[in-house]
Computed example of a mutant assay.
Amino acid sequence: MPDATAREAIWSRYIPEHTIAGVDLDVLVNASDGLTPADIEYAARRASQEALASSLRQQHVDIASRSGALSTDDYLEALRATRTTVSEETAREFDEDVEMIARL
């Protein structure tokens, strides 16, 4: 499971450049603790897709010129709709395996 530094890097990779300045990465990093990189990517892409769908419904096709760029809340909403792909038990077992192998 990615640590906070890795989660920040993952979020930074998937949040568009024109949006990232208005997003609180620390909030997203904390909210995505326990998620895999794929889970975080899914949430980031879902937020973008929801914004595009909303824009199209409002007939504002050019999403890049939207005055209201994606916000931290948009990403948090996408996170709430994201299910973890690794259970706590599996993550714990993996950590135990890593610890045991590191001792060898």
Results as ranks from 00 to 15, higher is better:
1 M>Q: 15
1 M>S: 15
1 M>H: 15
3 D>Y: 15
4 A>H: 04
4 A>K: 10
4 A>G: 03
5 T>W: 04
5 T>I: 07
5 T>M: 05
6 A>C: 15
6 A>M: 15
8 E>F: 08
8 E>L: 11
8 E>A: 15
9 A>M: 06
9 A>F: 05
9 A>I: 05
10 I>C: 08
11 W>A: 02
11 W>D: 01
11 W>F: 02
11 W>P: 02
11 W>N: 01
12 S>K: 12
14 Y>T: 03
14 Y>I: 03
14 Y>K: 04
15 I>H: 03
15 I>R: 00
17 E>W: 04
18 H>L: 09
18 H>M: 07
18 H>Q: 08
19 T>D: 11
21 A>M: 05
22 G>N: 09
23 V>F: 01
23 V>C: 03
24 D>L: 00
24 D>G: 02
24 D>E: 06
27 V>H: 01
27 V>Y: 00
27 V>R: 05
28 L>Y: 00
29 V>I: 13
29 V>H: 01
29 V>F: 03
30 N>D: 11
34 G>Y: 11
34 G>N: 12
34 G>Q: 12
34 G>T: 14
35 L>E: 07
37 P>V: 10
38 A>Q: 11
38 A>Y: 10
39 D>G: 14
40 I>N: 11
40 I>R: 13
40 I>A: 12
41 E>L: 10
41 E>P: 07
42 Y>V: 06
43 A>V: 00
43 A>I: 01
44 A>C: 13
44 A>K: 00
45 R>I: 11
48 S>F: 14
48 S>N: 13
48 S>K: 14
50 E>V: 12
51 A>T: 12
52 L>N: 13
52 L>Q: 15
53 A>T: 14
54 S>F: 11
54 S>H: 14
55 S>D: 08
56 L>S: 09
57 R>N: 14
57 R>S: 11
59 Q>R: 13
59 Q>T: 10
59 Q>C: 08
61 V>G: 05
62 D>A: 15
62 D>C: 14
63 I>A: 13
63 I>L: 14
63 I>N: 09
63 I>S: 12
64 A>Y: 14
66 R>A: 07
67 S>D: 11
69 A>E: 12
70 L>F: 04
70 L>A: 06
70 L>D: 01
72 T>C: 02
72 T>P: 02
73 D>E: 07
74 D>H: 08
74 D>S: 07
75 Y>F: 15
75 Y>L: 00
76 L>S: 02
76 L>I: 01
76 L>F: 02
76 L>M: 04
76 L>T: 00
77 E>M: 06
78 A>I: 04
79 L>Y: 01
80 R>P: 02
81 A>W: 03
81 A>S: 08
81 A>V: 03
82 T>D: 00
83 R>H: 06
83 R>V: 06
83 R>Q: 08
84 T>V: 10
84 T>N: 10
86 V>M: 10
86 V>R: 09
87 S>T: 15
87 S>W: 06
88 E>D: 11
88 E>W: 05
88 E>P: 07
90 T>W: 04
91 A>R: 03
91 A>G: 01
92 R>L: 03
94 F>P: 01
95 D>K: 08
95 D>G: 00
96 E>S: 08
96 E>Y: 05
97 D>G: 04
98 V>T: 03
100 M>H: 09
101 I>M: 14
101 I>P: 03
102 A>M: 11
102 A>C: 08
103 R>A: 15
103 R>V: 11
104 L>A: 08
